[in-house]
Design a protein around this nucleic acid. Structure first.
Lengths: 149, 149
DNA sequence: TTAAGATTGACACTAATTTTCTAAAGTTGT
DNA sequence: ACAACTTTAGAAAATTAGTGTCAATCTTAA
C-alpha cells in the first residue's frame, strides 16, 4: 500500500500529469484497501463525488496505474479484471476465492520463494511474478451448506 | 487425461446425448493434449473436418464439459478462456507463462498439499482446488533479450 | 499567463461470450 | 416404422468488457 505522495511522485517521474480524475481513482483504492475493485466498481464509487467522470477514463487510468506497477491487475474468473495496490517487492499474499459467494480474502505467504528457485533451475524459466489462488468454501458458506443437510 | 470412453459414460450418466459435434470437440482436445485451446481455437480446428459446426455449439459444449469436470476452464490473461482436460484428483500441475511470447508450459508439483492444510486450519477455508501461475521469461525469450543487450 | 502537449468525456466500435428462436435430429412407446 | 415428445444445433441478435477516435479542456513548465 504505497503512500499517495509516493504515487504522485512516480507519476511525475514518468511525465504523467496529476489530474483530479487520477487522484480520485487512486483514492478509491485507498478507501477500499481490502477490496478488489473492477473498473465498473471504481466507476460507480467515483461517480458519487465526481459524476462527470467517464468510464473510459477509469479504464485508461487503471491501465496506466497497472503499467506503473502501482496497481496490479488480477483475474478472479468472474469475467472482469480487478485491481489492488501492488505490494512492495517480496511480501507476497495470495487469494482464497469462495466458490459460493465469490468473496475474495487474502492470505500471507512466503513459502513459494523456494519453489521458484527449483523451477528456475529445472525449466530455465526466469520468474518475475507468481499468482496463487485457492478455490473453495469460506467459513460462512460452509456453515450454510451444513445447515441445509 | 480421461479416456474417451470414460467421458462418454459420464455424459450419459447425466442424460446428455453423445452427438457427433460433442465427439469432435472432445477429440480436438485429445489431439492437442499439450495445448490450451480457446473456444476459437477449437472452432478453427474442428472446422477442418466439420465445416458446418457453429461457434455457439463450441461454446455450449465447452461449458457443458467444464461443468461435468471433464475440461477445466483456465484464464491466462489473454482475454479469452482456455481449456484443458481435468487431471485426476491429486496430481496437480501448474503453469509457466512467458510474458514475452505468451507461451504456456506446464510444470508438475505436489508441494502445495501441505500448504493447503495450513490454510484450512488458519482460515477455516475448505479448499477444493488451487491454481498456481508463474509469470516470467522462457528460455528462448531470455536468449533473445540477452542478444539485444 | 500562456502556449504546447497531455488528458478527458462522449460515443462509436471491437471482440468474446450468451441468448433467442426455430428447425432438425434423437428417443420412446406402440 | 411411426407419431409424440425432448434435446440439441445453427444462425443471428444481444450482451458485456474493454478500446479507439476526436474535439474540447486541463496541467505544467517557462
Amino acid at each position: 500500500m504505497p503512500y499517495l505522495e509516493d504515487i504522485k511522485t512516480r507519476l511525475k517521474a514518468k511525465d504523467y500529469k496529476i489530474t483530479p480524475q487520477r487522484k480520485v481513482i487512486i483514492n478509491a483504492f485507498a478507501q477500499n484497501m481490502e477490496k478488489h475493485l473492477s473498473a465498473e466498481d471504481v466507476y460507480q464509487f467515483v461517480k458519487n463525488s465526481h459524476p462527470e467522470i467517464g468510464l473510459a477514463t477509469v479504464y485508461r487510468t487503471l491501465d496506466l496505474l497497472a503499467e506503473l506497477q502501482i496497481l496490479k491487475k488480477m483475474n478472479f474468473g468472474d469475467g472482469r479484471s480487478r485491481y489492488e495496490f501492488c505490494e512492495d517487492d517480496d511480501h507476497h499474499h495470495h487469494h482464497l476465492i469462495c466458490l459460493e459467494c465469490d468473496k475474495v480474502t487474502e492470505f500471507e505467504d512466503d513459502l513459494l520463494e523456494s519453489l521458484e528457485a527449483i523451477i528456475s533451475k529445472k525449466n530455465g524459466f526466469k520468474i518475475i511474478d507468481h499468482q496463487l489462488k485457492f478455490y473453495g468454501y469460506c467459513v460462512d458458506c460452509q456453515q450454510e451448506k451444513r445447515g441445509k443437510d
